[in-house]
Structure formats: C-alpha cells, structure tokens
Amino acid sequence: MSAINPSAWTLEAMRERLVRYADLQACRTAFIDTRTPGSTEKENFTIIGPGVSESPDQHVHIREKHGFNIGGARQPFGCVNSQHSHDTAEVFVVHTGHWRLHFGPNKEDGSLDIGPGDVASVPIHMFRGFSKLDQGKGFLWMPLGQDDPGKVTWAPAVFKAAEDHGLKLAKGGKLIDTTSGNYELKEVELETPPSEAALEQLKTPSLEQLERCVVRAEQMVANPQSPLAGEGVEEAGVIVPQETPDHFPAGPIAGWWPHDFNLRRLTLQTGAYVPLHARKEVEVLFVQSGTVEVGWKNGDGEESLLMGAGDTLSMPVGVQHSFRNTSSAPAVLFVVRGTEQPQMPVFASAPIEELAGASA
C-alpha cells in the first residue's frame, strides 16, 4: 500500500475508507455449509481485501491491498460455522456475544469460550469452527493474514452435509448449486475432502497450547513504553509476534505461525487526546466500544469524522492523524498495524525531514 499526497484526503475521500457497522453488507451464501442445518443463519462480511468467501455474491467493502484482510461474522444463538482450516492467520476479535471455538475435524479436540473484548488467534493448518452461545446476534471482527488469504480447507463431514443439501465445491473455491439446473459437473473439477495423509498434517495442538492463543479483555495490559501513551491514553499489545521498533515486547499472543500484522488495543478516557502523528505502515481502526473523533491533516487544514461502536476505518500511510474521545465514556479501539515490525510514529512536532520520511 503506497502513500498518497496527504492533501488528497478530503472528508469525502476518507469516508470511502470508513465502513460503518450499520452499512455492512452481508452474504448469506458465502460458503459450502450455507444450507447445512444449524448454519443457515450466519452472515459473512468482507470488509477489507478479497477474504475467503466461495460465493460471487460476496460484497467487498474496501478492495485496496493492505497486506492483510479484515472480515466479519454475525450469527444468532446456536448458529454454527463449520469445521475448517486456514493457510494464513485467522483472528477473532469478539465485538458482541459469547462464542465457543471448536477444534478438530469433528469437534473432538476440545473447545474454548470467548466473550466481548476477548481476542483469539487460531493457528494455521488445523480445524476450527465456532458457534454462538447466548441469545441474540453477535459479531466477530476478523483480521486475516496476507493480501490473498487463499481458500479454506473443509473437514470431510462438511462436504457430506453440503452434498446432502445440493452444494458442491469446485477446485479454486467456487460453489456449485446442483439444484439450480444450470451446471455441468462433467466440465468442472470438484474439490474433494482432505485425504487421511492431509488430515495428519492438520492435527490440533494441545488445549494448553491453544489457550496461549487467547487473551481475555481483562488480561490486556497497557504498555507504558507505547509512543501513544499519555494522560488518559493506554495502548496494550495483543498480537505482537516479535519485539517491535515502537517499544512493544513480543506477546501476549506471539504465535508460532506468521501473522503479517500487529494487533493492539487503544483505550482513551473522556477528553483524552493523541496528537497528530503519521505512520510508515497502514493501520486499520475498529471501535469496540464508545465513540472517537479521528482527525487528520488535509493540506493546510484539518478534517475529522466520528466513529462509533462496530465501525472500521482504514488510515492511509503517511497521513498525519489524531484521536480524541469527546464522549463521557471510555473509547476502546482495536488497531491492526501492517507488518510484524511496526515503526515508531512520527508526531507533527517532529523535524520536517522525519515527517517526509513517514509519508515516503
């Protein structure tokens, strides 16, 4: 993702990079299990990047490459997302609701429960699924690794259940509806369930290992060395694969697989302010709770917009921007920063040559 002249970022241009929760466009036919009983009510969202959807009907909100993807899932009580494996990082940020992560091709390898504000990063090359535990709908905000996260590998039982309801999967991840009459299976190479040898390569780590891949909201500890830390402002590392130039130690989720990004939690008390600063990597903001005013430098002036709970904003590289909590309650944001080695931010008070370097 390349930097663009900061004067190009008008309010209208920045609104194109803002996806409000109320404006999310769901796909109800994203995957092969879309007709499987227990899974029919799930909604899939592709917020940034192509995602892993198998349906041409999937709406992509922001197509620009970021080095990672952002997706989402919304499900009612009891709804199940079937067992599958990913080739790149899959992270669950729980916005609302209580959820159970199921492990193993047939859910035989245990489970972990997560709730609002918790974060789980499930290792690559293992089967996982998830279900909604409590009443009402809940929403998961889901960063995925790399610009192209590939397609998921489904557990054998998922193929059988889908076939019983008229759905097959072509090589490359395209759904085929055998009930529509508009297909020729003899002209299509079908995806097949993973072989026994493949299943051996997708074994579940121990529950003890998997528990180290979950951070509860109350376990997220502010880093006093964060360059954003100040009066009423705290930044906690959540997924930090390795020690970073902006003074974050590895952990609490480091992982033994690549993530391609950092995940932080930023908390602003009432009236707290993070002054104008630029970054050398793209960052994506997600408001977990509260409201925050995001300001940015546009030529010789400044613009701003207000974000509320569930909103997502992609902040361009090199644009000087600020955060302010103008409400009477704390604002909590999750922030994805591109690369596993985010650099120090450059504040507007820095020498002009540093500012130029931040936007290069």
Rank of each mutant, 00 (worst) to 15 (best):
Y21T: 10
T326C: 05
V221H: 01
R35Q: 10
Q83V: 11
F92K: 08
E218A: 05
E340V: 11
G71M: 13
F68T: 02
V221A: 04
A278G: 13
A197Y: 06
V346K: 11
F286T: 11
N223P: 04
Q341G: 00
V292E: 07
F130H: 13
L101R: 05
L306E: 03
S226M: 09
R20D: 09
I62T: 12
K42H: 10
D147K: 10
E235W: 12
L199N: 03
A278I: 07
K132N: 01
E302P: 10
I124L: 01
F248G: 07
A26E: 11
D33Q: 15
A217Q: 14
F130G: 06
T267L: 11
T153K: 01
Q341M: 12
G38V: 04
A236Q: 08
G237S: 05
V91Y: 08
D177S: 10
H277T: 06
K297S: 06
P316R: 01
P50I: 15
G138M: 12
E234W: 08
E200Q: 14
W257I: 04
A229G: 13
L101V: 13
L276E: 13
L133H: 01
A170E: 02
S327G: 07
P258N: 11
Q225M: 07
V274M: 08
A348K: 07
P245T: 07
T40R: 15
A30P: 04
V240W: 08
A89V: 03
A329E: 15
G136Q: 07
M220H: 04
D147T: 13
S206V: 07
T326I: 15
S226I: 05
V60W: 05
F261W: 10
A278F: 02
Q219G: 06
D260V: 12
G51T: 12
H84C: 02
Q83P: 03
S322Y: 08
N69H: 05
L266Q: 14
A222G: 03
N262F: 02
G172A: 13
G301E: 12
R279Q: 14
G97D: 00
A197R: 10
D33V: 00
F92V: 14
H98I: 05
E200K: 15
W257E: 14
W256D: 15
F31I: 00
R63F: 06
L140P: 10
E218W: 08
T204K: 04
V292D: 03
V93D: 02
N325M: 04
P76H: 08
V335E: 11
Q135I: 14
V60H: 14
R212Q: 15
A350Q: 03
V335K: 04
E234D: 06
S349V: 12
L202Y: 09
S2D: 12
D23R: 00
S226E: 13
G230Y: 04
N44I: 00
G51F: 09
V91A: 10
S2K: 12
P116K: 13
E184N: 15
E200M: 05
L268F: 02
T96P: 03
A329H: 08
V274L: 11
G173L: 15
E43I: 00
N5H: 12
L228R: 08
W256A: 10
L207V: 01
P6F: 11
F347P: 05
Q288A: 01
T29Y: 15
K171D: 01
A331Y: 02
P249T: 09
D87A: 13
